[in-house]
Design a protein around this nucleic acid. Structure first.
Lengths: 88, 88, 88, 88
DNA sequence: CAAGAATTATGAACCC
DNA sequence: GGGTTCATAATTCTTG
């Protein structure tokens, strides 16, 4: 009865149940993610109708993410290389 | 005094406040989005350690978003192309 | 005889020939691309054995690509701030 | 005078010359790579205007890189998962 | 709807 | 050699 998909006593179906659980949870979270994306889109639309430039606004937000990270880069060594290439 | 940036009664600062609000809300939602992405990643990791093939699992979830007719169509088309190249 | 794949007089086979040509050319170019990637990898390996830090070296090369683009970016951003404060 | 960057007799400048050579060669190869990528893109565009489905075409080319046994295995696995979820 | 940016997925490389 | 990060490829989304 290996292929009887109604027989929950088989290992095959234990795996099937597990797979279902995994797929369900992923799909659930993806929907929430999608809803948030929609909310974000709405805010951009609101910004646009308030006269802000969307493209530049995106750029601004991107920069705010990057700036803290950029501080502690391997600045020293990079600087040495840049000097070697006359990029000072 | 339209350019006096310390005067909160000017339209300039109303716009600035509006921009701040917009940026704050977007950043907040983006963080939630990021958290969800992390949760999804965790589930894939769990699936992997349960023995599922992640790549195939992703394909499966992608397919579930499509209409059955659409799936059928792409599969048929792929088959046509494979035959055309003798990949039967 | 619509499905006779040996009949070159059918439109189906004209399409098949076209597909073959397309696939062949793409695969050819991808091989060249792969060969170049391999060459680049070799140079990084050489750099490493000469004592250079590969990660920093990659960062340096990335920067050399971006720097010209960044000039314009900053100007755009300045404009954003001005607009946000109604200083247009 | 170890830090005199104008003194070409120092080991520092030997390293600088070496770095320059490395960076130059990498940048040269990356440009060639970029040109090939552009050529490939053009062929996909041509394929599209000839009526081919680009997404399926990409999948086909990906498959041609795999071993036939590997393709079969993934297709089988996908089928198993689909059945487990009742997607028949 | 085509072009381009932005996100996501896959593949490669490095470290432990 | 396994897992984690990094780099490239591909798809999706947005804008003109």
């Amino acid at each position: 009865m290996a292929l009887d998909t109604t027989d929950t006593s088989t290992t095959g179906n234990i795996a099937a149940d597990r797979l279902k659980s995994i797929v369900d949870r992923i799909e659930r979270l993806e929907e929430e993610r999608k809803a948030l994306a929609s909310d974000i889109k709405d805010i951009y639309a609101e910004a646009k109708s308030s006269g802000f430039d969307i493209k530049v606004l995106r750029q601004l937000i991107r920069m705010r993410k990057q700036e803290p990270a950029e501080i502690e880069e391997q600045e020293t060594l990079l600087d040495v290389y840049r000097r070697a290439l006359g990029m000072v």
